[in-house]
Computed example of a mutant assay.
Amino acid sequence: MSSDVRFTDFKSDKQPTWCPGCGDFGTMNGMMKALANTGNNPDNTFIVAGIGCSGKIGTYMHSYALHGVHGRALPVGTGVKLANPELEVMVAGGDGDGYSIGAGHFVHAVRRNVDMSYIVMDNRIYGLTKGQASPTSREDFETSTTPEGPQQPPVNPLALALASGGTFIAQSFSTDAQRHAEIVQKAIEHDGFGFVNVFSPCVTFNDVDTYDYFRDSLVDVAESGHDPTDYDAAKGKILDAEKEYQGVLWQNESAVAYDQKHSITQDMSAVDSGAPDGAMDLVREFY
Rank of each mutant, 00 (worst) to 15 (best):
T8Y: 05
K11F: 07
K11S: 11
S12D: 01
P16Q: 04
D24E: 14
G26L: 12
M31T: 09
M32V: 12
M32D: 05
K33T: 11
T38R: 02
N41S: 15
F46A: 06
V48L: 12
A49Y: 07
S63I: 00
S63F: 00
A65Q: 11
A73T: 02
T78E: 15
N84S: 11
P85E: 15
E86C: 01
L87H: 08
L87W: 05
L87V: 01
E88H: 05
G93Q: 00
G96L: 07
I101E: 06
V107P: 04
V110T: 15
N113C: 04
S117H: 04
I119A: 03
V120I: 14
R124C: 07
Y126V: 13
A133H: 07
S134C: 04
S137C: 13
R138H: 11
F141Q: 05
E142W: 00
T145Q: 14
T145P: 03
P157I: 01
P157T: 09
G165V: 02
A170T: 08
S174N: 06
T175F: 13
Q178C: 12
I183G: 05
K186D: 13
H190A: 09
D191F: 05
F193W: 09
T204G: 06
V208R: 13
D209P: 02
F214A: 09
D216A: 15
V219E: 10
A222C: 07
H226S: 13
D232N: 15
A233N: 10
K237E: 08
I238C: 10
E242Y: 00
Y245C: 09
S254I: 01
V256F: 02
D259P: 00
Q260L: 00
Q260V: 08
M268F: 05
A270F: 09
D272T: 13
S273D: 14
S273N: 09
P276T: 12
E285Q: 08
